[in-house]
Amino acid sequence: MAGIGGAETTGKKVGWGLLNAVVVIYALLPVLWIVSLSFKSSATLADGNFIPREWSLENYQNIFSTSEFTRALINSIGIALIATTIAVVFGTMAAYAIARLDFPGKNLLVGVSLLIAMFPQVSLVSPLFEIERSLGLFDTWPGLILPYITFALPLAIYTLSAFFREIPWELEKAAKMDGATPGQAFRRVIAPLAAPGVFTTAILVFIFCWNDFLFAISLTSTEQSRTVPVALSFFTGSSQFEDPAGSIAAAAVVITIPIILFVLFFQRRIVAGLTSGAVKG
């Protein structure tokens, strides 16, 4: 801090601080507005105040009073967790093979998985709807889990193969020389090192499944498998003339919480530079 350039450093700091503040406010203002709305009573809902004049938990009580929202919450959590688990497990195996092995058709496989990721989802909705109807998957958990896995896998494979490439291959050779079977080498050496990649991928896939609206609204029809983003759109006020904005705001706040928890939980495990010290440099 001391010495030449002190003033410049302070100036820079102020500049960066301002810029950061602008970005944070820009990003968080809508979120804060939703939070604020969710705590307003129905009478003061449309008064335009940023800080509620009358704090109330009425909206939260409302959304949890019927099964409409709680059921959707359970659906969302279940479907997203199952889809994430399956996508990450298969993605890990596929990415490991892509990063380590040279097999015929490898480039084709990577190309095709990229193609799937680029395919516009909206164009698949109607065929999927027809297929799921005839297979009896419509309006069931697997009916949503399957398309989610399909679109999450390319993402998982891409992120994970980048992580696997970072792991020095010699570690695996060393494990083999130390007496490990290929399975032991993977479990005890490679998997722990790939953990940050796996958690990053898990977060991305979970968020993708959690936020999806298009498939969820097209491939469900009842509470049995409807996820929260869809349930939100079906919210009505207690009477036909009541604005459901308060309830929607409360629900929006509630469904943000699992995402924040999920990220916080896994973020601690995303330690950069976990492989440092393995090999020279």
Binding site: P168, A174, R188, V189
Partner: peptide
């Protein structure tokens, strides 16, 4: 397989397991 030959190898890059301590590395 390498594990059944009962020979040990030292690599140019050392190939130490970064998530293990020195003791765990040697005990592996």
């Amino acid at each position: 397989a390498p594990k059944d030959r009962d020979i040990a190898m030292v690599f140019q890059s050392y190939a130490l397991y970064p998530h293990m301590t020195v003791k765990e590395n040697m005990a592996f």
